[in-house]
Nucleic acid binder design. Structure first.
Lengths: 215, 215
DNA sequence: TCAGTACCGTACCGATCGATCCGGTACCGA
DNA sequence: TCGGTACCGGATCGATCGGTACGGTACTGA
């Protein structure tokens, strides 16, 4: 029983990186097999042998993209205060979507064009996962007294995710890193501390309202 | 020489509306001729005779979409205070991207997948135009004393556009209108008035308050 | 040496893409 | 009545889509 066979003649991770770049630039539908194989430097059958089909290749590429380009999410969540979490998340996102030498925007948003394909659910699921991690982190911050108790963790998490998603689109519109960072600063103000002595000022800076329905 | 010819047998505006819906649901690339012609109820050659080619059809559809579904932008800009402008813009956008019976999201964002096509520039240009109108409006608000003079009109406009763009994506992720409205309320707090002391009625933003002092 | 295995890539598959050819038809003014 | 014109749509175009069949090759263990 032979365990061998002809060895692969290309670097599979290098090829995957090229696939990430291609999907990132053009999205799922617009990235054709011809473009993919040319960027990856391999033949069409080699792609199918190594990665399955186009959909599986995209899933592999998305996983690698998340591992390599969204580490700022975990980094942000590890910050000690809610305000720092929000700040690190937004600035990290801006940096990621405006990295020189890489395609503008975010693969998770850029590829969303997939017309009700299976891959679509992966992207929304990724955003939902990050949103849940942010929400849990802000709930913790409230429990610790780090964040105003009147704030809704779910709403704050949604706020950050929505803004970050907007950053990805705006970056592909040509917005610069500095411009997006300035926008991020607008949002940080939402994450004020309880300010026990001057409660009224805190109340002014935030907007207490009906809590969002969560499902 | 005859000026006539066989009359068109379909409603060209109705067909265009169907095209808007199809592009809205699937984006530019994913909306195929077969799907378009079926939705529009006309044959393929009829489409080309009436609208030119696919690209020109999309431009016509985008124009009609803007005319019919983005009136909230002009409405928002006409509000008396900067805070009301911001509030009306964001809530109007949320309503537009979560209208029951219509596709979730925004055609201008959904169709952005067009792989460096000419149509792409139209979409970014549309966002830039709106951003400029908001910026001018906020500059005016500062001049009138309606908005804190330390605010940057350009940054505020960018902030709203970015958030609205994010709303469009998040709506297609399945976020509900209420959830997005709650997020919008987060952002309204940024538009504070020059004199923070008398600001008490910042509830859920439904009741915009005019500045008690002069202007 | 030789069967087994997994890689290689040329050439090709059916389906679908956007776009058009062309014979037929309905309306105009002369 | 008739030439001119513009719309009608079935049939079809070449190009490209995602995906594969297949003959050839390089490595394994027996």
């Amino acid at each position: 029983m032979g365990s061998g066979g002809r060895p692969r003649t290309f670097d599979i991770e290098g090829a995957l990186d090229a696939a990430v770049d291609t999907f990132w630039r053009h999205g799922y539908e617009a990235a054709g097999l011809a473009e993919l194989t040319e960027a990856m430097g391999i033949s069409r059958p080699a792609l199918y042998r190594a990665f399955g089909d186009k959909d599986q290749l995209f899933r592999s590429a998305l996983t690698r993209y998340i591992d390599q380009n969204m580490t700022y999410v975990s980094d942000a969540l590890a910050r000690p205060t809610a305000r720092e979490v929000a700040h690190a998340f937004l600035t990290g996102n801006v940096a990621a979507v405006t990295t020189p030498g890489r395609p503008a925007g975010c693969l998770s948003v850029q590829a969303m064009v997939t017309d009700e394909a299976e891959a679509f659910s992966l992207l929304a699921e990724n955003r939902r996962t990050i949103q849940e991690r942010l929400r849990d982190r802000f709930a913790e911050a409230i429990a610790e007294g780090d964040l105003d108790a009147e704030q809704d963790p779910d709403r704050l998490a949604r706020f950050l995710i929505t803004l970050a998603t907007g950053f990805a689109i705006r970056a592909t519109d040509g917005e610069t890193r500095e411009e997006l960072l300035a926008v991020a600063d607008c949002a940080i103000a939402t994450f004020s501390k309880p300010e026990p002595r001057d409660a009224e000022a805190t109340r002014h800076g935030t907007v207490p309202l009906r809590k969002a329905a969560n499902d």
